[in-house]
Design a protein around this nucleic acid. Structure first.
Lengths: 222, 222
DNA sequence: TGACGTTGTGATAAAATTATAAAATAGATT
DNA sequence: AATCTATTTTATAATTTTATCACAACGTCA
C-alpha cells in the first residue's frame, strides 16, 4: 500500500486529492505548508509527495529541495496558471512531474501511478548488476566482493548509469543529473570521469559502453 | 537533438518561438495553420508540437486530434485567456500542456523540456518489424536476436525508415529528418548510407526497398 | 538494342568524436 | 599557509565516421 503526502495550504484542495487518492487505495497524510511537510518527512517515509508550489511559510520549491536533500522521495508539483513557471519548474526544482491548477483529479492520479512505478524500479538499497554490487546507503561498490575505490563524482556517475541500465545517456543528460543544474562542465570532463570510473571498476569497465555520436550507457552483455 | 513544430498563423509569434527554440538547441519547423501542420506530420516526426488554438483553416484542437490519431506526438497548446478548461485538457483534444497568451518565452521553453522528458519516459521503447527488433532506449538493433552493429547515422536512418514503414521517402525528406535542416549533403550521400545500413542488417536488407526515381521505403514482404 | 538517367559500390580524404595525458584550478585538511 | 586530493580544463593522439568522388551496374524507354 503506497503512502502519499499531500501538501497544500487550501484545505479544500487537500480534501479533494485525499478523497481521490483513498479511492485509488493509497494511504494519505496532509500538511498545510512547506515547513510542516519537511517536518513530517523527517520521521515518515512516503512513496510520493503532492506539493503546491505557492504556500506560506515555505514554498513548495524550497520544501522539495530540503526533503530531497535527505530522502529520495518523488515529488509532483502543483502550480497555479500564470505563475513564474520557469523559476518553479526549470529543472532546478528536482520535481519529478508537475500538474497545472486547476487540474483533473483523474489525471493527477494517473501521474501518481507513473511516478511511483518509476521510482520503485530505481531505488533499492542494494543494486546488483552482473558482477557488480552497489550499496547505496554506504555508497560502496563491490566488484566480485572486492571493494572499488571511487571518488564522489565517480560514484554518482556510476549510480546514474546503472539506474538507467540499458539506456543510452547523452553527455547533456549526464551533466544535468550528475553535476546538477547550476554547474556546467564541458563534455570533455564527462569523458574524463568516465575514463577514471572505468579504470577503477576492474573488469566491469566493459559494462560502460561508449555509444559514438550519442553518449554512454551501462549494459550487461548477454 | 529534439525537433519542434511551431504552428501559428501569426508569423511574428512563430519567429519569436523559433528564435528561442533554436537558442535552446532545438531543430524547428513551422506551419501557419492546422491543415499545414497535419500535412507536415504525415512524413515527419517531431518531439513536440507548439500549436495555437485559434487558427484559420483548421483550429488547433482539431489539428491536434488529427495528428494524434496517427502519431503519438505531445502537443502544447497556446490559447488566449478565457478558453474553457475542458476544451484545453479534455480527453478529446489530448493536449499535454497549455500556455496562455501572451506568454513568457522562457516559460514556454521550460515546458517544452518537461513535456519532452515526460513523453520519452512513457512512450514505447521497443519496435518490432518482421525479423527486426529495435530497442530505442539502448539504440540497439537485433536481427533474429543477433545484434546489428550500426553507427549513429545508420541507426537514425533506420529508425526514420521504420517509423514510416510502407511510406516512400524522398532523399530530401530523409536528409531533413536524419541530417537536420541546416545541413545539406548530396543525394549520393544518402545512397551511400543506405548501402552501409543494408550491409549491416543481414537478411533485413531486403526490407529497405529502392523506389527508382523517388527514394526509399521500409517494407515487410507478405 | 542502345542511350540515358538513376542507383550501388569501393576508395579516399576530410571531419568529427573519443581516449588519454598533462596542466591548472578549486576545495579540504592539517 | 601549506599540502594534498579531487576535479576541471586544455591539449594532443588515436580512432571512427562521414562526405564526396569516380565509375560500374542497373533499369527504363524510345
Amino acid at each position: 500500500m503506497a503512502k502519499i503526502l499531500i501538501v497544500d495550504d487550501e484545505p479544500d484542495i487537500r480534501a479533494l486529492i485525499c478523497r481521490y487518492a483513498k479511492h485509488e487505495g493509497y494511504d494519505t497524510a496532509e500538511a498545510s505548508d512547506g515547513l510542516e511537510a519537511v517536518d513530517i518527512c523527517r520521521s515518515e517515509d512516503f512513496d510520493v509527495i503532492i506539493m503546491d508550489a505557492m504556500m506560506p511559510e515555505l514554498d513548495g520549491f524550497s520544501a522539495c529541495k530540503k526533503i530531497r536533500a535527505a530522502k529520495d522521495i518523488p515529488v509532483i508539483m502543483l502550480s497555479a496558471r500564470g505563475e513564474e513557471y520557469d523559476k518553479l519548474f526549470g529543472f532546478e526544482t528536482g520535481a519529478d512531474d508537475y500538474v497545472v491548477k486547476p487540474f483533473s483529479p483523474r489525471e493527477l492520479m494517473a501521474r501518481i501511478k507513473v511516478v511511483i512505478n518509476r521510482h520503485v524500479k530505481t531505488s533499492p538499497n542494494k543494486i546488483k548488476v552482473g558482477d557488480m554490487e552497489i550499496d547505496t546507503l554506504g555508497r560502496n561498490v563491490y566488484i566480485d566482493t572486492e571493494k572499488a575505490e571511487l571518488t564522489a563524482k565517480e560514484y554518482d556517475l556510476l549510480l546514474y548509469l546503472v539506474k538507467n541500465i540499458g539506456v543510452v545517456l547523452t553527455r547533456e543528460q549526464i551533466i544535468e543529473n550528475v553535476w546538477g543544474y547550476e554547474y556546467y562542465p564541458t563534455d570533455r570532463t564527462v569523458d574524463w570521469q568516465i575514463k577514471q570510473l572505468r579504470s577503477h571498476i576492474g573488469k566491469c569497465r566493459d559494462n560502460i559502453v561508449t555509444v559514438r555520436g550519442v553518449g554512454y550507457k551501462f549494459e550487461i552483455e548477454k
